[in-house]
Structures are given as C-alpha cells and as structure tokens.
Design a protein around this nucleic acid. Structure first.
Lengths: 139, 139
DNA sequence: ACTTGACTTAGAGTTAACTATAAGGATTAA
DNA sequence: TTAATCCTTATAGTTAACTCTAAGTCAAGT
C-alpha cells in the first residue's frame, strides 16, 4: 500500500509539517503508523481523515472537540449515536453560518449600491438629499 | 437628539464597554461625541455605524482595515472610489465564504447519511461491506 | 452625602491554533 | 558519503481581538 511522508501530506493539504506534528501531539491522528525507526507513514485513508478534520475545523470546531470525535471513532460502533449527533449539530452550525453570511451579504449589497450611485453622482450627498427632501416620511 | 451611554450601546449590540472603549482607542469610532466632562454620547447614527463595523468584522476583516475604511469616511467624497472597491472586495470574500461553507455542508451531509444508515444497521461495517463486496470496481 | 456609572492610563492576562527554534540523533536516497 | 529528510523533547514566540484589573478622578441623580 502506498504511503506518504509528512512533508508530502503537508504539501497536499496545504499545511506545514509543524501543524501535522501538532495535530499528532493533540491526538487528532493516532491512526498514522510508523516505520520501525519512528517515521510516520501516511496512508491514503489517513489523508482522507485529515480532510474530514479540516472540514470540521472550517466549521469553527475547536481541536479539542475534534479530538473527542477521533476518540469516538476508535471506540467503534458503541459511539455511532454520538458521532451522528455531532454531525447533525455541525450541520445546524453551518446552516446558521450561511444564514448569517446571507444577512451580511445583504448589508454589503446595500453598501455597494450606495457607493455605486454616489460615485455616479460624484458625491455622497445624493443619499442625504433623498432624506432631506423626503417630506412624507420625515426620515 | 437622543443619545445613549456606553453601557446602553454595549447592551444593545451585545458587546462590552471594554470592547467599545477598545474600538475607540483603535480609531473605529472617532465620530462619537463627548460631554464637556468627557463622557461618550452615542447617537443613533453611531450605533448604525457600529453595526456596519460588526458586519465587516463578521466577514473576517481585521480591525486595522476597518479603521482604514473609517478614515476614508472622514475624508468625504474623495474616497468614494476606495470605499466602493472595498465593499466590492468584501462582497467577493463573502461569496467565497458561502461557497466554502456549501462544500463543507456537502461533506457533512454525507457524514450524516453515513452515520444514519450505520445506526439503522447497528454497525459501521455496512459501509465497509459495500466496498468488500464490490468485485466490479475493486475499491 | 452617597451610590452609580462614567472617565483615564497603563499594563497584564486570555485564548486558540499554530509557528518556530534549538539541540541532538537517526535514516534514507543519490 | 553526503545531503536531505525524518525524528524527538522542550520551550518560546506570534497573532488578533479582546478582557480585565488597578488606581484614581469626576459628575450626575436621589
């Protein structure tokens, strides 16, 4: 079975060897095997596992919680329920993040429009004038 | 014109007074006026500006860059182009973030399915079995 | 008068996730 | 054989954005 060195994996996943050893120290990749002399041999499945770890990280999950998940994986079928619930929770988190970003996007779109029209008019006052002249709403 | 104290603003925006003074020190809210004795008087428009600051922050924009924007605002119409470009860039950033989260969501959805079916079967092996038995693709 | 809440400067502490260095040793590919 | 790459432990530094404390002052409300 083909294996990869720590620097090959680092390159492929856009991490550093420092980071990978740090992950190892933190217990995120206990499944990575070693040669008799102690050199890490990453299997393709280890790289896939690291991609999941990066995926969880990108949802804002702290490393200590990711470690819990990795520990559950070692426990086998007994932890299936916990792992399922963890991913359901992650799903909810990501949905909320997307919803927040959409709101952010609305505000930014408004600002893009604001500045686009201001630029076309040559002055920001065009927006202030709209309000000053708005005798109906007094805004 | 109605004004608000630092603690009222902190409460409304779910920040602390420490944070608001920190923002002030970092030059994010130079427009907030003071009483003759130095107490900050936040106007409604100041609160709206803080909401924009929080919006920019939520896109991952560092405080020093937000300060640049605030400085541009003080410069008036001369900086309209820069401010417009800044928001266009923020728009692109947020779009990329949403795209990333969608990819993340796909992976998480897969995992939800994986664990749901594993739970129904009582064992994770159901997924391994699929591969072992797959004599066509040898995956 | 007293309490509350505002202010200041200055600086220390926190947190997470790296990021790096040093010092020394082992292994491997050309 | 030599250079590159790997390993270890231990430790220290970095960064951003807070977060908080201290020490002392000031001012408004009851």
């Amino acid at each position: 079975m083909k294996t990869y060195s720590i620097s090959e994996v680092a390159k492929e996943l856009d991490l550093t060897t420092f980071t990978l050893r740090y992950y190892d120290k933190e217990g995120l990749i206990p499944f990575v095997e070693r040669t008799s002399s102690g050199i890490r041999l990453f299997k393709q499945s280890d790289i896939e596992a690291l991609k999941i770890i990066e995926c969880l990280k990108s949802t804002g999950m702290p490393i200590k919680e990711i470690k819990n998940f990795i520990d559950w994986c070692s426990e086998g079928d007994a932890s299936l329920q916990q792992r399922y619930e963890m991913f359901l929770e992650r799903k909810a988190v990501v949905e909320a993040q997307i919803a927040d970003l959409r709101k952010t996007m609305e505000i930014i779109d408004h600002k893009c429009f604001y500045y686009k029209t201001a630029l076309e008019a040559g002055t920001e006052n065009i927006h202030k004038d709209i309000n000053i002249g708005n005798t109906l709403t007094h805004e």
